[in-house]
């Protein structure tokens, strides 16, 4: 009976989400778009197959892979200006798997300006910018093959005299058939708002991510389709774990991403080292920035 109710809730929310109104105003900047683990980024930003605690940020249903407890840390700096950091922890309990995640982006010393009498601009003071989110996640396995998860998400933005807050719900489902695994994510399933203290409002636009992983011998092959602002974005990834050194992996990917309304493409690369439940991952991608034309990402996972 409980299983039937859970099925109905999931199917209803997914269906409502698919027909949700696409509001044509500014969409809130989602921190998680940068990526939440170096491994996922190196695979072309494929989401849903993390075996670490950062699955809280991707697909909460993925917590079914956590045996007892896990922690993840991720960091990157973009253009020497934007500092991204995240931490997530998960734990197995008798009533299911629980996880908590925190992610932030910080920028410092932004000039607050004025105009002088000779029409020149000057700096009055400096302010900082901080965008952060909390996720509280729960995962429940319906059976050996089907796993469901949900995350309550709280978004916040603070800069100058501006403060904004909003909440929404992420839903996830993972279907696991031996070598084939499928992941479905409804991010911001209710298309909520972030409201600001200056009467501004931004939309937490619902996003749907469908991805698959197929394991073939020493290779893992990934594919993903993402729905973002009326565009469908594709990603593919490949992971190679040599049989001789199973704690080492090489990852590569190709992803499409959206900049304003234009779809752009990028190649990604990465390596990983996973020894006794402690994993170190690095990802690289080319940037189109004039000065900082390389992006580097690092993450550490601990699985107990």
């Amino acid at each position: 009976m409980i299983k039937k109710i859970i099925y109905i809730i999931f199917i209803t929310v997914f269906t409502l989400g698919l027909y949700a109104n696409k509001v044509f105003c500014a969409n809130y900047y989602l921190l998680t778009d940068i990526g939440t683990s170096a491994r996922s980024i190196s695979l072309g930003s494929i989401e849903g197959f993390s075996e670490a605690a950062n699955t809280v940020f991707e697909n909460p249903a993925g917590m079914y892979r956590i045996d007892s407890a896990a922690a993840s840390f991720f960091t990157t700096t973009i253009m020497d200006e934007v500092y991204y950091n995240s931490v997530a922890v998960c734990s197995d309990t008798p009533i299911g798997k629980f996880g908590v995640g925190y992610m932030e982006a910080s920028i410092y010393d932004i000039p607050h300006t004025g105009l002088n009498t000779s029409d020149r601009l000057y700096v009055k003071s400096y302010f900082d910018f901080k965008n952060y989110l909390y996720k509280l996640s729960y995962a429940y396995s319906l059976n050996r093959n089907i796993h469901l998860g949900a995350s309550l998400v709280n978004y916040s933005t603070e800069f100058w005299e501006i403060k904004g807050k909003g909440s929404d719900l992420d839903l996830g489902c993972i279907v696991d058939y031996d070598d084939l695994e499928l992941s479905f994510i409804a991010r911001n399933a209710f298309s909520g708002d972030v409201t600001f203290n200056n009467d501004g409002k931004e939309v937490l636009l619902a996003r749907y991510i469908f991805s698959g992983k197929y394991t073939y011998d020493e290779f893992e092959i990934f594919g993903q389709i993402r729905d973002k602002e009326t565009k469908k974005l594709l990603s593919i990834g490949l992971s190679y774990k040599p049989r001789l050194i199973p704690y080492f992996e090489i990852n590569a990917g190709h992803k499409e991403f959206l900049v304003l309304n234009r779809v752009k493409k990028n190649l990604t690369l990465g390596v990983g080292l996973n020894i006794s439940g402690i994993g170190f991952y690095y990802a690289y991608e080319k940037s189109e920035h004039f000065e900082y034309d390389n992006k580097n990402y690092f993450s550490v996972n601990i699985n107990l």
Partner: peptide
């Protein structure tokens, strides 16, 4: 300047070359 795209609130960076 941005093709009438409604940019989300946040910080943006510019360089003069």
């Amino acid at each position: 300047t941005f093709d009438f795209y409604d940019l989300p609130s946040g910080v943006y960076f510019f360089i003069l070359i």
